[in-house]
Amino acid sequence: MDSPYSHELKIAFVAIQRAAKISQSVLAQVDLGVLKKDDLSPVTIADFAIQALLTATFHAAFPSDKFVGEESAAELRENPVLLERVWSHLQQGADAGGDAEANGLCWTPESPEQACEMIDWCGSGVPGGVGTGRVWVFDPIDGTQNFVRGELYAINVALLEDGKQVLSAVGCPNLSPDATAPLMDNSLDPEGRGSIVFAVRGYGTHVRQLTGSLGDVSVRAIPRHAEEAPTLRSVTCLNTLASGLEDVHITAAERLQMPFPGCNILPWVVRYVALGLGLANTTFWVYNTRARLAKAWDHAGAMLLFEEVGGKITDVDGRDIDLTAGRKMATNYGFVAAPKNLHGLVLRTLQDVIRQDGRIEVIGSGA
């Protein structure tokens, strides 16, 4: 795909390939170094190592750019053994090699201390808005619970300019580039190729296999299947997360006469991959409280995969998604993604169900 961001994509591809090798080397170990964060989600040495790798690589290529990522290095500084394990995997990743071009583009921190510093660049970073320029947003392992279980997970790389998505590159180390619906958490690539799904605003969504240099692998453009869609096909997270009003989701799907759950996937980024690839074209999520806020790295960039095939994404109130609000998306409540021609129907139906349910106030009026 020719675009003004061809160089950024080249960097993203090699960085994701090396990040995938780190994730796989960590996965091969019995003890994943699992900790518990304040929000009780698991985090492993893979998250820390990959965030450090991505930051070092993109900083070397674009030294004026800023960064946002999920992790901070506080746990590493308090746990020298864990830091040593992270550093060991970073060094192993650097020694894993690759073609000469990849080796010249992919960088690792120069020391454990610098690795912590770069992780914290992300951990204290904010997406920003108008006038803030270029900000890279990383989720080093999206779907860490799946990762620990050997199921589908993603490495999310996004570029924002003045708070707007302009580039998305998502590495899915165990998802086939030829995946078919219904996609489930355990729908692993039988050939072990993995995939990268990527998009640039105005240039469409594409998919390639994870391995191989850009000149050696085929790239498939995804048709704009979500601009005018005849039916609704769901991707959701049924019976997996307690953060949503599951009965509201089920009732709304019944009223929309939409088979449910369809694709059933835990990680948000992989759900957007399913939407982008056309394995589904609709998802909605009503949090069980308005105090629950989404996190930028779970959505930034990955949403572009669906928007570039014609899809529309708002929150449950019908507001546009605002990535400038901060690390947590404080101006949005929940998500509604659907084909552009059917988004209004999905939004109105979901809001009607929420009103009748009565647990959550509906602020929007539909579209």
Rank of each mutant, 00 (worst) to 15 (best):
I250Y: 14
F260T: 11
A154P: 13
E228Q: 04
L214Q: 06
T144H: 03
T211C: 14
G143E: 06
E254Y: 06
G143K: 02
A169V: 04
P267R: 00
P173H: 12
V248K: 10
A199M: 04
C237Q: 07
R220H: 15
A169W: 05
D178E: 13
R220A: 15
V235H: 03
S218P: 08
A179Q: 01
L232I: 03
L159I: 12
V269K: 01
T240K: 13
E246P: 02
A280R: 06
P223A: 08
R220S: 15
G276L: 02
V217Q: 00
D189N: 06
G276M: 00
M258K: 05
L277G: 10
L238E: 09
L241Q: 11
S176E: 14
P230Y: 09
H225R: 09
R271N: 03
T144F: 02
R193H: 07
V235Y: 09
T144A: 05
C263M: 07
W268G: 05
I250N: 05
I155Q: 14
G244H: 13
Q145W: 07
N174F: 07
G204Q: 01
W268I: 04
L275W: 10
V217M: 00
L275E: 07
G143Q: 01
E151V: 02
H206N: 08
G278H: 03
E254W: 04
G244W: 06
V207A: 04
S213A: 10
I250V: 11
P259W: 04
I155T: 14
P230V: 02
T240I: 12
P267G: 06
E228H: 10
E161T: 02
L167T: 04
G212N: 05
R201G: 08
P173E: 08
R224H: 15
D185G: 11
L275T: 04
T251S: 14
L275C: 06
C237D: 05
V269T: 03
T144S: 14
P261R: 05
N174S: 15
A169P: 00
Y203Q: 15
H225W: 12
W268F: 07
D185T: 09
G194P: 10
E228Y: 03
G278P: 05
G171R: 01
T144M: 06
I265E: 13
L238M: 11
